[in-house]
């Protein structure tokens, strides 16, 4: 697990559901085929209504036309991020698009669990709602040891909640690596 990383912010609102993260019409592609996977990047966050895409301005596409990777690698969300379906295509498409971390006030349970067990990115919980403090495009830095988020554009630092129970799985990489480490499945 990296101790520090940096990236630009893409800010979303409350209750961003899995149909906004990856609309159901696109769930037909293979996640294991290296070429087809890119489709998930291309459509990542494509179901977010235009006014909520890249706050506070909105109307900022996460993925530029014709691309499958995003210039934003840290997602800032509000409450209940990832609610809705159990589709793992949701965290997967975000990882494919280049997301390294999501920082939300709270998560829907299955999305959170999928992000951790599949090792797609780190789902952090913020101590307070950040969606109105951070602007899409701000330069952010996350320090995992100190559990902090620094907004370099605005020169502000926020504390993040400790990862808690799931830290061991995140450190191992995913649920399989964790199970090997703990002897549940043979290494």
């Amino acid at each position: 697990m990296k101790e520090k990383f940096e990236g630009r912010a893409y800010v979303l609102g409350n209750n961003v559901d899995t149909d906004q993260i990856i609309p159901a019409a696109h769930l037909v592609y293979s996640l294991s085929d290296p070429e087809e996977r890119k489709k998930y990047g291309e459509y990542a966050l494509s179901g977010v209504p235009a006014e909520g895409a890249g706050l506070p301005k909105g109307n900022t596409p996460f993925i530029e036309e014709g691309k499958w990777q995003s210039e934003y690698s840290v997602i800032i969300g509000g409450k209940n991020f990832g609610c809705g379906s159990s589709r793992e295509h949701a965290p997967a498409c975000m990882e494919i698009a280049g997301v390294q971390a999501v920082i939300a006030e709270s998560y829907a349970r299955i999305f959170y669990r999928n992000s951790v067990d599949g090792g797609f990115f780190i789902p952090f919980e913020s101590e307070k709602l950040l969606t109105e403090e951070i602007n899409t495009g701000d330069e952010l830095a996350i320090d995992l040891k100190a559990n902090t988020l620094t907004n370099r554009t605005q020169n502000k630092t926020y504390s993040l909640k400790p990862l808690g129970d799931v830290k061991d799985i995140i450190e191992a990489g995913n649920i399989f690596e964790y199970a090997k480490k703990t002897g549940l499945i043979p290494a």
């Binding site: 589709r87 793992e88 299955i110 669990r113 067990d117 599949g118 649920i175 199970a179 549940l184």
Partner: peptide, 20 residues
């Protein structure tokens, strides 16, 4: 309860899953 593909794959191989 509902789970994702990774957890389902883990169950396919082990018959077990962690739950809080």
């Amino acid at each position: 309860t509902g789970i994702g593909n990774t957890d389902a794959a883990f169950i396919m191989g082990t018959g077990k899953l962690w739950v809080k």
